[in-house]
Design a protein around this nucleic acid. Structure first.
Lengths: 197, 197
DNA sequence: GTCTATATCCAGATAGAC
DNA sequence: GTCTATCTGGATATAGAC
């Protein structure tokens, strides 16, 4: 019976979260005021607080939203044939984020926010661990395809190199955000020249 | 004539900045209030504002302080013999930061802060560009030592790979901050297995 | 559910005595 | 230069009408 109402609520929450995310992407979580979010939605304070109990709730929900998409993207990678190079995997991950968010500032800010906000920290930790696990699986597969290592070595190397791939993505995002003259294309091309062995 | 006074002022500023840095490292720039900094110094509001015109000034000064040390460290690297491996260079950079700050949370937060604070952005941009330049010089030297490339190729490869080394450092810091189970030792060991060619 | 109006709090910053 | 006391603004969040 409360079916329509549930749908409506979910829609409104998504609407509010989307507007908030636009604000956060522009100015960061902490520097964005509820007043700005309210203006961006076109709604009123009362309406917002009817759906979110606090600004903190909104922050966490926004972070969850755009991080979730990434994990879904990645899960598909492992089954692609031919198996892409490690450098290509990183490039795809970065491209997915870029399309979703426009730029990487928001993600860089989320990492910073995690330092002082336990809820965000937990969320990021979970997502990053999932991401790393996907990379571990992919890399094991990649080493198997090379055919020069035994099964145990493939798995071990996957575990060892996964955080390095994560770094290559994170570094792109930090430098792309902070350095005005960062050359993303050249960076991605260089990744293809890296040898994991 | 105002000599003692100048020294005293500089000392006090450093004292205040050090206390502020401790606070920022714990809670982040934005989440730290002036009241906390005041408490940490043991001084009073009036005393602080006698030396810093605003919280923002204090933030920028703190960031400048700990970023500056890193650039100095790096400048020495290029002249070391035998020339360390790229992976070792990254490890040294990371170790230097760790000794100076205890952990990397503060740096991760600075990157986030740069998104919304132009003064911090400029500072980080400058430091990161200097860092990258040092890496470029070092890498050119490294490729020369291998003896398989001509001069032009050495320089070009240095420019191409420098941002990758930067990423390897940044990724360590992000993951070390955000992932409770991040294995820094294993990560650094893996870097030694990366081949740049 | 949503609005307007407002309560409440705490931040950064200052004034003026010493 | 440093203190205490305080101002002022803007932040989050709520109350109550519709």
């Amino acid at each position: 019976m409360p079916k329509v109402s549930e749908e409506y609520k979910a829609e409104r929450r998504a609407e509010i979260a989307a507007a908030a995310l636009r604000c956060f992407a522009r100015k960061g979580f902490q520097a964005t005021s509820m007043a700005e979010i309210i203006a961006e939605t076109g709604l009123s304070a009362g309406a917002i607080y009817g759906h979110y109990a606090s600004k903190d709730d909104l922050v966490v929900d926004c972070a969850r939203y755009f991080l979730g998409n990434r994990v879904n993207d990645l899960a598909r990678l492992k089954d692609q044939r031919p198996l892409p190079q490690p450098g290509q995997v990183a490039a795809m991950f970065i491209a997915g984020f870029g399309e979703d968010l426009g730029d990487f500032g928001i993600l860089v800010q989320v990492w910073g926010e995690a330092v002082s906000n336990p809820k965000v920290a937990e969320l990021i930790g979970s997502v990053l661990t999932q991401t790393r696990t996907v990379y571990e699986d992919y890399l094991a597969e990649w080493f198997r395809a090379k055919g020069t290592l035994n099964e145990q070595e493939c798995v071990a190397k996957g575990i060892a190199f996964a955080p390095v791939i994560v770094s290559l993505c994170q570094g792109y995002m930090v430098q792309g955000t902070v350095l005005p003259d960062f050359d993303g294309e050249a960076y991605l091309a260089t990744l293809l020249d890296l040898r994991f062995d």
